[in-house]
Design a protein around this nucleic acid. Sequence first.
DNA 1: TTCCCTCTGTATCAGTTGTTACATATCCGG
DNA 2: CCGGATATGTAACAACTGATACAGAGGGAA
Lengths: 222, 222
Amino acid sequence: MNILDELERFEPFRKLSGRGKILLSQGVIRKECSRSTIALNKGQVVSGAYVVVSGRLRVFTLAPNGTEATLYFINPGETCVLALNCLFNDLLYPAWVQAEDNTVITLIPGAIYRRLFEQESTIQNMTVHALSTLVFRLMTELEQMHSSHQKQRLANFILLHASSQGLLQMTQQQIAHHLGTTREVIARLLREFVANGLVRTQRGSLAILDASSLQKLISFPG
Amino acid sequence: MNILDELERFEPFRKLSGRGKILLSQGVIRKECSRSTIALNKGQVVSGAYVVVSGRLRVFTLAPNGTEATLYFINPGETCVLALNCLFNDLLYPAWVQAEDNTVITLIPGAIYRRLFEQESTIQNMTVHALSTLVFRLMTELEQMHSSHQKQRLANFILLHASSQGLLQMTQQQIAHHLGTTREVIARLLREFVANGLVRTQRGSLAILDASSLQKLISFPG
DNA sequence: TTCCCTCTGTATCAGTTGTTACATATCCGG
DNA sequence: CCGGATATGTAACAACTGATACAGAGGGAA
């Protein structure tokens, strides 16, 4: 299975005309990343559009004191919009990106992507849609950040990222990174959640016991 | 001077072909707003693309306790990207918008805008560029929010929004709104700035005395 | 001038968060 | 089963922030 076949699993690329395929084949790169392979650093020149084939990318900022904060995730079939962004505006990449285990990405060189964008309306639509989605995620995150306490944000994060069985397989350190705080703060909040019977904690994971109370907490931090 | 002439002051519209103009003329609306005319409310259905002709729009979120936080401004020639966003994704508007004094906006109905987007590459480019710019602004704001204290954010805000003479004509309440905090906090921080000779405060405005020290403060909150 | 409204200055207190420091627990490999 | 590495639990403190309360100060209108 070559790169183009992989790309064609995703609708915008499946719809490409023959010319699109020819364009695409010129210099598209496939990359396999393992956890902690850093895909892109802040300030780096963006060389093309990234499309996630499998796995997941995490985009985050890094404060001077070392605490991270996740901005958003990039799932299979999605492109890194920030990279698109830089591509179209000749800007340097403004954040850090890390791959989770077994992530495969393809890199479509900038020149090719720009040509595709001009000629293929499905690529145009995908681009606009991806940008729009990101704007929405960022807005939501910003709004949460300025109107919620950590307790609310944690409750929200747990509900949002837990599996359908109510299990969240993450260390407290990882959760802390996502929320832009430290492990101790997460531990303190989780202690309170546990005391109130909202969750159960184990090493490396956490189980929701009372989802509705967690939900209420988001609106009424009481 | 009719609406289309006004729109043509801005490049993307100047470049429109004859057909584009015909499309544009069908139902474009001109609106004049005075301060505190609220252009758009959270949860409202977005009826079209907004282009600012003169004046300025402010987009902000509103926390349950009533504190505002400015997300970004929309200057003449720019469009409200959030509205575009909703337009292309059939979403409800996710924030509040307020006009400053003497702001004139034009409203291009959604159906027309979508057609223009499909047929006119200048409109495509404008849309992508506007979305990209917004993504960048939001990212920057988010990063600042999670890595800076109010002191740093205030110093940054003052430097960024002061006139070339170093004058910032805003009440402390307005500044507080922009940073998502309360007036008293701003007063407390400004007191410190004044004590250190960084700024001078007057009723309704504030003058920068030592820009370079303010700049240093952003990096080293000391 | 005088009244009134808005804007500013200040003090104090409570709540939240980040930091430091250390104890304990769990997992994994040898 | 024994260490080392990693993850968690806990306490105590400092810093920052938001909330409350009130005292002036400035500016405009009658």
